[in-house]
Design a protein around this nucleic acid. Sequence first.
DNA 1: CATTTGAGCTAGACAGAGTCTAAAGCCGGG
DNA 2: CCCGGCTTTAGACTCTGTCTAGCTCAAATG
Lengths: 143, 143
Amino acid sequence: MASATATLPVEKDAIPSLLQQHGISPTAQRVEIAGILLSKCQHLSADQVLTRLTEHGASVSKATVYNTLGLFAERGLVRQVIVDPAKVFYDSNVAPHHHFYNVDDGNLIDVNAAEVPIEHLPHAPDGTVAEAVDIVIRVRNTG
Amino acid sequence: MASATATLPVEKDAIPSLLQQHGISPTAQRVEIAGILLSKCQHLSADQVLTRLTEHGASVSKATVYNTLGLFAERGLVRQVIVDPAKVFYDSNVAPHHHFYNVDDGNLIDVNAAEVPIEHLPHAPDGTVAEAVDIVIRVRNTG
DNA sequence: CATTTGAGCTAGACAGAGTCTAAAGCCGGG
DNA sequence: CCCGGCTTTAGACTCTGTCTAGCTCAAATG
C-alpha cells in the first residue's frame, strides 16, 4: 500500500501493478484514466481527462472520472492542485514541488521544491497536524 | 489610486474615502459591502457576505456582491484566497501573509509572512512576472 | 450449477458557485 | 429638463462536482 511512485511517463503495462501498489483494484476504467494522466508530467482537470478518454475511444462516465480521480488523489497516486477557483487540477507528478500559475492564460508550471528553500514552518494550530505545504507563485504575462 | 491600506478594523466613516483612494466610487452598496468585510480581520466567501448583508437589513443583489468583491480584489482593497475548490474567500487583511487551511472543517487562519522565511524565489517563466506568492499549509485535525 | 453478494460502473437528476443579459435606476453635465 | 454613462438588479444560465438508483459482472457460496 506504500507509494512506489514510478517515474513519468508510466508505461501502459506497468499501470495495473502500480494501481495495486496503491491499494487500488485495476479495473478497465481506472487503468484507462491512469494511462492518460500518467502518460507524462502534466496537470489535467477532470473535464480534460473526460475529453481525452472519449478522444481515445474509451467511454467512461463522468461520475467514474470524478470518483477515480478522487480515489487516486486520496491514495497518493496523483496530487490535487487548487489554484483556479473554477476547477481542480490533477498533477501526475507527486514528487514534492510547487507551481507557477499564470493568471492570464491558466498555465501551470512545476517548480522543483529545492528551488524554494523554506527555513522552517510555523507550528500548526493546536489540535491539528500539517499535512502539506502548497506554494503557488502567481505570474502574469508581461506587456 | 495607490494603496492607503488602513489598519483593521476600518471605521464606518472612513470607508468612502478609502474606496476613493483605491479608485472606486463609493456607492451605497459598495460602502455596505466594504463595511462588512473590513469590520475585522476575516475571511468571507461571497455567499457569506450576501448573508450578512441581508442580516444587516441591507438588500444587495447577488450579482452586485460578486461584481463588487471582484472589483475590490482587483484594486487591492481585499485579497482573494483560493484554497477550497468549492469557493473563493475574500481576506480583509492585505498585508503580506500566508494561511493555515484546515481541510477537515474549512477553517482558515493567518500566518505572518515573517514566520515563513523564504530565501529566494525562482525566476518567473519568460514573458511573465511574479505577482504574488501564496503559501497554504494544509492541516488536519488530530485524532 | 444456481444463487448471492458486493464492488464498481453508469445515466441522469441535482446542487452550489459564479457569470451573463436585458432592463431599470441614479446622477451629473449641458 | 434631458441625455448618457455608470451601477444595480432579477433571473436565467453555465459549469463543476455530487448523489441516487439501478445495472453489470465476477467471485464466493451452497
